[in-house]
């Protein structure tokens, strides 16, 4: 039950993109096509889950016992940066087409605040290891849902007549605002 609550809260109520504003860069950047969004979601899920586990271990077995909490930002970001490098190398070998499609955005997962944000939130909420893993997976599902719905919306923008000044990014933000409004409907259920 406890885990279901964490999942519902992270996916719908406090959606990481639409209500916490983490991971906006890939949300606007790679959401032009549904296909690339799915690939990006896969990469983020993988990195976010492993990153949260590793940062949990660092926090509880290194930072806390030695009382060096101020090293949190530096140590967490280093772990995430090396993880992303690992995923990049793996993807290049295992699935070259996906690697081609994600292109520049793969190294950018390092600067995807959603990954670092989820890791820090899990520490802040004082979750244990299992809860942290559930929280990370739920957050990446939330990220994926927002990204894929948004990509679906954006694919239709090509067919619309948009005023010249609204073309591209501005209309995407307005659409994201409407999507965020829709997600506000989930407030209060968990």
């Amino acid at each position: 039950m406890e885990y279901i609550l964490i999942i519902i809260a992270a996916v719908f109520v406090n959606n990481i993109v639409l209500s916490q504003f983490l991971g906006i860069c890939p949300f606007i950047g790679v959401s032009a096509k549904v296909e690339t969004s799915v690939g990006m979601t896969g990469a983020v899920t993988f990195v976010m889950t492993i990153a949260t586990v590793v940062t949990y271990l660092i926090q509880h077995y290194i930072l806390n016992p030695f009382d060096i909490g101020y090293m949190q930002t530096i140590s967490f970001i280093l772990v995430i940066a090396s993880l992303v490098q690992l995923v990049e190398i793996m993807l290049k070998k295992v699935s070259p087409p996906l690697y081609q499609a994600l292109g520049i955005f793969l190294p950018l997962i390092t600067t995807n605040c959603a990954v670092l944000g989820a890791a820090m939130l899990a520490v802040q909420f004082e979750y244990n290891l299992i809860q942290s893993i559930v929280f990370a997976i739920a957050n990446s599902i939330g990220f994926g849902i927002a990204l894929i719905i948004f990509a679906g919306l954006r694919e239709h923008f090509d067919l619309l007549e948009v005023p010249a000044a609204m073309k591209g990014v501005p209309i995407s933000f307005v659409a994201a605002g409407l999507l965020a409004m829709a997600f506000m409907g989930f407030a209060g259920i968990a």
């Binding site: 209500s19 504003f21 933000f173 605002g177 965020a180």
Partner: peptide, 17 residues
């Protein structure tokens, strides 16, 4: 609230365009 952030930024970018 959160939707307002997206809307306000969208319209400000439109103005700057």
């Amino acid at each position: 609230l959160s939707p307002g952030a997206f809307l306000a930024l969208g319209y400000l970018i439109m103005l700057s365009n």
